[in-house]
Design a protein around this nucleic acid. Structure first.
Length: 215
DNA sequence: AGCCAGGCTACCG
DNA sequence: CGGTAGCATGGC
């Protein structure tokens, strides 16, 4: 099983980071509504952006006490833009944050439907699923560019498969376990950063070697 | 110096 | 439908 191979290679990852630190083997996160909000903000800011840059933006928001939905709605747009500038696309992401935050406040602590998140401008499938998995502990498998890259490279999925198809494949072949999905996605990202960041992809990938030896 | 990053929208044919 | 330009900054 690829999951166990990745786990033995990289160890537990402890996603999602809160307060810029990871909490390995602690799956009881978020603990508060503000931590939940921080995860959602991070999910938006990390769109096509490394989390290292997102950390800079989150710290700026934290310094201005804006990792709080009500405060964020009251803040000036220019201040928000300045805070999140390090994470890139700051004009678009400011708009996305404000639209999402307005929705978040309307929830009043209710868990959102996936379809509700997807209906918001700026929230696509990966962002919605990251929020539902890491924020609300829903057993949804998050698919990202790395997942497609690794599993197409290993010839386990077809390059033409779309987001929903790939997600269903994972969810059909795994127990619907929030903790498993949490670690698995994080492990995929850790593995891809090491072996699938630049072309040609997969050089030295131990999972690939593992497959060629056993098949 | 140039490519890549934990995507999404708008617009094209 | 599928394909792609644009979005913007920081790290390496």
């Amino acid at each position: 099983m690829i999951y166990k191979k990745l786990l033995s290679l990289h160890g537990p990852q402890g996603w999602w980071p809160i307060g810029a630190t990871y909490h390995k083997k602690n799956y009881d996160i978020p603990k508060t509504s503000e931590e939940l909000f921080e995860i959602c903000v991070g999910a938006i800011l990390t769109q096509n952006t490394s989390f290292r840059s997102v950390d800079l933006a989150l710290n700026n928001l934290r310094e201005h006490n804006l990792l709080n939905p009500k405060n964020l709605m009251k803040a000036s747009e220019n201040l928000v833009k300045t805070c999140i500038k390090p994470s890139g696309y700051f004009n678009q992401k400011t708009k996305k944050l404000l639209i999402f935050t307005n929705f978040f406040l309307q929830l009043k602590n209710r868990k959102p439907l996936r379809s509700e998140l997807l209906s918001l401008w700026g929230i696509g499938p990966e962002t919605a699923d990251s929020m539902l998995l890491y924020g609300w502990h829903e057993p949804i498998f998050v698919i990202d560019a790395y997942t497609k890259r690794i599993f197409t490279h290993l010839k386990l999925i077809d390059t033409a498969f779309k987001y929903e198809e790939i997600r269903k494949i994972f969810e059909k072949n795994l127990p619907l376990d929030y903790i498993l999905f949490n670690e698995y996605h994080a492990l995929i990202v850790a593995h891809a950063k090491q072996f699938y960041s630049k072309k040609p992809y997969g050089i030295g990938c131990p999972v690939e070697l593992y497959f060629s030896k056993t098949s």
